[in-house]
Design a protein around this nucleic acid. Structure first.
Lengths: 164, 164
DNA sequence: TTCTCGCCCTTTTTCTTGCTCATCGGTCCT
DNA sequence: AGGACCGATGAGCAAGAAAAAGGGCGAGAA
């Protein structure tokens, strides 16, 4: 175990290489961690009848009902087509419903149904439970640090937020 | 595992509640961060002709050529069927090739082709570049901390690795 | 005032990854 | 041999992205 590969191609011998090696390990690490979280969350919310990715829609709607698909997509960090399909699936499942906006005919408001409303608590609990399990053994400070770094990573990767 | 939810998010003003709230934010945060990483990486390696998720196969094979799909799946943290399909796609793209193992007829060894071999450097560079961009502005210690916490999260979420 | 063009939002389509369940084939043990 | 086991693969379902189409609203021009 701990098969440290040490050096790779050894192009340059700068100290920056150490940082680069750590950074190179970050993409796989975050990908795998996210997969684990996604899988665990998927199991937790499967008994509520929905899939991973749908929980965010429920929770976002529970805070502000009647958002448009575009708003939901921006809020959850996915693209509009993805949100459209997710909403369609959830509408077929009976969790949400689409309503045309009276003022703007091109807008579609998404509302929670009774079923969706009743699932809010369960979903929130599942998300919190999953998160709690993920940070099991973490100190308060570590959790906050992880959150902070995660958001910083996300911010660094935003194409438009490039104020550099 | 304690499926007990017990307390809600309303009463009981304990310090644990704060942790629960932070933990509840973790799942969305890590999901979004991973999406950003995945998207950025996808863009970086798209000019090499492959998609997100294929980079790990190339890099894993560049370290140990001739691994089986099962080994690759375990190494990259995905399930075997996923790896089978990814390998099939990459084989069609000409990056890898399957070879039957002489000793065990049920084993399939995956090898890099010339094209795959030539893409190794580019892929590694893209992954490192993406990681570097993700941790832009981070100190060396912060990067290491993030890596450590990410791996701890992943470890916490392993169902079988429950030595608790 | 009315018509038309451009823009924004939504939706559709196509591609890939990923998981779960199920199947097939080869090995190894009994 | 025959059956159990392991590894690879196939089918089905869903998320997510990019490209492109459809539709309505508003602003500008005649």
């Amino acid at each position: 175990m701990s098969k440290k590969k040490g050096e790779k191609k050894a192009k340059s011998g700068k100290k920056k290489e150490l940082a680069a090696l750590s950074a190179a390990d970050l993409a796989p690490a975050i990908t795998q961690a996210a997969r684990s979280v996604r899988t665990a969350l998927s199991r937790s919310i499967s008994d509520s009848g929905l899939y991973a990715g749908q929980d965010g829609v429920i929770l976002a709607l529970s805070e502000d009902d009647g958002q448009t698909p575009g708003q939901l997509a921006a809020r959850l960090g996915v693209k509009a087509p993805t949100m459209t399909r997710t909403i369609g699936r959830m509408e077929a499942q009976g969790f949400v419903e689409r309503r045309a906006d009276g003022h703007d005919g091109r807008l579609t408001k998404v509302h929670l149904t009774e079923t969706g409303l009743k699932s809010v608590e369960s979903i929130g609990q599942s998300v919190a439970d999953c998160g709690a399990m993920a940070v099991r053994g973490f100190s308060e400070k570590e959790v906050r640090t992880l959150l902070k770094l995660l958001r910083a990573v996300e911010h660094n990767l935003q194409p438009e937020a490039d104020e550099d």
